[in-house]
């Protein structure tokens, strides 16, 4: 036995279970090995949603279109909220598309452990593959919805000539990335916090709804004044949404101070999310 444990030192173990890993250990190599699984998960998410429907993926577009029309009716026609120089339809459509991507990423990743307990309880793969693939399938959906926006947008840019896009458009992918990373990080953080005590879950969907009203989805930041404006700006989503919108719609706040705040917030949140996710993923199956 002794001899064994001596020569044991030269064995290169592929994995050691039960040793305390570093908290922020994010094993990219392992996740890369499972990239096929990730793409298959994405495919599954996209394909299964509208199985046995006649319109199929068209539903991805119909949904935000109807929401936009409803917003136009309620907020523009009835409540009379002004969207500045921007045509309300573009303002709402872009806002809704971005917001949907953020909130769906957050909602679905926040249920990572609880929804997938039956799979996680039977087989090992890096748990984080699931929330990542959910974020990617959300992106595919976003692209479909965004292209609908682009069609209408092109009409307003070239035929109506009522809006002037600007150079910040080039930064749009970065703003989008920051938005989705924030949704993802919040999601996995909540997911880790709710495996044992589920109390927090009840607050999440309510909280997300509430935050929407403090994000320039319905009201542009330019229409908010005084203390409310500070609240809007303290919401890290605000400057990212405004930045994304300003590139396409030509109006919106792009202030580096606030963008820096949002990005910093996102990075910290990401680290906190990963740390708690890593800590929980090893044992959550016992308590979920």
């Amino acid at each position: 036995m002794n001899e064994n444990s001596l020569s044991n030192e030269n064995i290169e173990w592929d994995s050691v279970i039960g040793q305390q890993k570093k908290r922020l250990n994010f094993n990219f190599g392992e996740i890369w090995k499972y990239r096929d699984l990730m793409t298959l998960f994405v495919k599954r998410d996209i394909v299964t949603v509208y199985k046995q429907t006649i319109l199929g993926p068209l539903w991805f577009v119909i949904q935000p279109l109807l929401t936009t029309l409803m917003y136009l009716l309620v907020f523009t026609n009835i409540a009379g909220i002004k969207t500045g120089a921007v045509p309300p339809i573009l303002f709402y459509m872009l806002g809704i598309t971005l917001w949907n991507y953020f909130s769906e990423t957050l909602n679905i990743t926040s249920k990572t452990f609880i929804d997938n307990a039956s799979v996680f309880g039977k087989v090992y793969f890096p748990r984080v593959v699931l929330p990542i693939s959910k974020s990617i399938s959300g992106f595919v959906k976003f692209l479909i919805q965004f292209s609908l926006f682009l069609v209408i947008w092109l009409y307003y840019v070239f035929i109506e000539k009522s809006i002037a896009p600007n150079i910040y458009m080039l930064l749009a992918p970065l703003f989008l990335f920051a938005i989705v990373v924030m949704g993802f990080s919040f999601g996995i953080l909540i997911s880790s916090l709710t495996t044992k005590y589920r109390d927090l879950m009840f607050l999440v969907s309510f909280g997300v709804q509430l935050v929407m009203y403090a994000t320039p989805v319905i009201i542009p930041l330019s229409g908010v004044h005084g203390k409310k404006r500070i609240i809007f700006l303290l919401n890290p989503l605000t400057s990212l949404f405004e930045g994304f919108k300003s590139g396409f719609l030509g109006s919106g706040l792009v202030e580096w101070k606030w963008i820096g705040y949002s990005v910093g917030f996102t990075v910290i949140l990401l680290f906190v999310g990963i740390a708690s996710f890593n800590k929980i993923e090893k044992k959550f199956i016992d308590t979920v």
Binding site: W13, D14, S15, G18, G121, K122, V123, I285
Partner: peptide
Amino acid sequence: RVTSPSTGTIKIKGRIASLL
């Protein structure tokens, strides 16, 4: 690797697949 042990370690060499 579905759950981790409370005490001790398990060391594995090679690709592992489980059919639970």
